[in-house]
Design a binder for these strands. Structure first.
Lengths: 341, 341
DNA sequence: CTGAAAGCGCTTACAG
DNA sequence: CTGAAAGCGCTTACAG
């Protein structure tokens, strides 16, 4: 049975109409049977018949059509920036998983360079996503505002922007900086180096504010500064530069682990320093490599998984219930003490 | 002007109808104006008028509706497995970028465990993707076949399966294994260890075939074997085990860099061995960390970017032109010689 | 509980 | 070159 029906519709995909015909019910009923929400509205007996027919034909509801009519596309946009490195790469994977657990999928957008952002903003909106998560590395105020203007809920991931009505979930960088400053001071360090990113993001600024303000409390002012890109290699080079000086610092705080690992290797290879005996190093992010035996880097951990869960929770809430004020959720970072200090 | 129109449609998104009304043309014309393909069909003068009206209203074509009618959803599915590690995480990012360059976006699916694959297969099909790329870590024959049955082009990324009519792009693991065997033999090693994955994937088997067959040519048979999961920590432990024996191998081939790095650290820390003087180590994948100064790992490089470009190229071709035989593209791996041998 | 019908926002023959 | 109309595959009031 049904074999003839199957044949006649060979080269198109099976629709609810086909199922209706085979099951001997109306197309509306097929639709209802497949909607868990109103699915209760169909008599059990008939529902079974519909499912049987659907199975026979290999029918699957067309999510695009459903999205079209109901506005529920089941898709969340995830916008990432370039040069993610080990920290951000993990994030994409985790977001995909958490979003999928909510019965939705991630449509991923990448901003290779900030200049090319305009056409990508257009695309984000055109896909009629239910919500959009913008990660710090891709953050752009115009993008966030344009998306919101189109009535799409937005969550900024790991970026705080003051005076703007957008959902934000982030780890307090000021606190992170303070944590490191306090720790290094307590360990007796007075001659301290600081290696920050080339690009001055707000997160970067805030780490600095926290770090410097805390040290100021102890009358420590003159830090040796270096800049680095977000890479091991660039960290290595910055390490070589900062350690070249006569009055070499006894401790260095790097605003990312990747850079800190480069600095550690530079210290050991270029200057024969032992860590932590001759030099203490502290990083930021707690990437996987930091726990490796060769490094054992003391660092500031950002509770990434928690942050992602919160972001997904918030975006799903806002999809269900778009009204109400923006949520701003700040999480405290934590110091992970290993052997590098 | 147009301000009244804008107001009256406040709480819904702007459609081509709204633009048509403001521009004083038919909805068909608006549609045509926005279709680069048939866009030439609209007189320039009128097209300008349409664009002007669209701009004023903030109109953007609804890609979901377009996908519904034309079947072109502009979305490619990317299916990944669990426990990706540094090698696979990079891949997601690169795929997103390359696919985006083709004017499409990646909808990412994750298979956390193979047992839960069925509902995910359903979802992949329901989204009416234009094509699907299945990465090796998520590979499942039923999935590939089900998707193809639904007339969706599929490319298997870095996995070869014999006797099946599916597009495949992969790096020859047999060749990779041979490369390493030959290299170690030429460097004078006769007592060799081999650390493979716990899970026996086909890729894993083929590496082994290549490695062992090449060594057999030199009458080397009795290799010390260990197994490890895909992680640094697990590699470290496997390293501890394999080096414990009296007749310690002088060289170890690990089928992934992450494991090799763990082995190197185990050798140095647990047994005070110097690399490469006391022990040679070779890895597989050429992840970023392998080039770090602490490791300088000799390894087999898979031309990932090339592989991804080819995959995207093939899937786009097959979307345009679904007929024809499946493409099977095998790429040769390359040995990257650093300091660990 | 079920069916006939309208409609989501587009594309695309079909006329003119 | 342009418009009126059909239709993509669904959901969802509206009757019954």
């Amino acid at each position: 049975m049904g074999e003839e029906v199957k044949k006649t519709i060979l080269n198109r995909s099976i629709t609810s109409k086909d199922v209706a015909k085979l099951a001997g019910v109306s197309q509306s009923t097929v639709s209802r049977a497949f909607n868990s929400a109103s699915g209760g509205g169909v008599k059990k007996e008939i529902r079974e018949k519909v499912f049987q027919a659907a199975k026979e034909l290999g029918y699957r509801p067309n999510l695009v059509a459903r999205g079209m009519i109901s506005g529920k596309t089941n898709m969340i946009g995830l916008v990432v920036g370039d040069n993610l490195g080990p920290f951000y790469n993990r994030i994409v994977d985790m977001f995909v998983e958490k979003v999928q657990e909510k019965g939705k999928q991630c449509l991923v957008f990448k901003i290779p360079r900030q200049e090319q952002i305009a056409p990508i903003i257009e695309r984000v909106i055109q896909f009629r996503l239910e919500g959009v998560i913008i990660t710090a590395s891709a953050m752009n105020r115009v993008m966030a505002e344009t998306i919101i203007q189109n009535d799409i809920p937005v969550v900024l991931f790991n970026r705080f922007i003051p005076g703007i009505d957008i959902n934000m979930v982030y780890v307090d960088p000021v606190e992170g900086g303070k944590l490191v400053a306090e720790f290094l001071y307590q360990k007796g360090h007075r001659n301290i180096g600081y290696i920050q990113f080339d690009r001055e993001t707000s997160e970067e600024m805030e780490k600095k504010i926290g770090f410097y303000s805390q040290l100021r409390q102890y009358q420590i002012y003159n830090l040796k500064e270096e800049r680095s890109e977000y890479s091991y290699q660039s960290g290595y080079e910055a390490g070589v530069r900062i350690l070249r000086s006569e009055d070499r610092p006894t401790a260095i705080f790097c605003t990312s682990d990747l850079v800190a690992l480069g600095v550690m290797d530079a210290a050991r290879e270029k200057y024969g320093l032992e860590i932590p005996k001759d030099l203490a190093v502290v990083g930021y992010d707690d990437i996987e490599m930091s726990s490796w035996k060769s490094y054992q880097l003391t660092t500031v951990q950002q509770p990434v998984e928690l942050l992602i869960e919160k972001s997904v929770e918030i975006i799903c809430d806002k999809i269900e219930n778009p009204e109400g004020k923006a949520v701003v959720d700040m999480v405290k970072p934590q110091l992970v003490i290993r052997q590098s200090v």
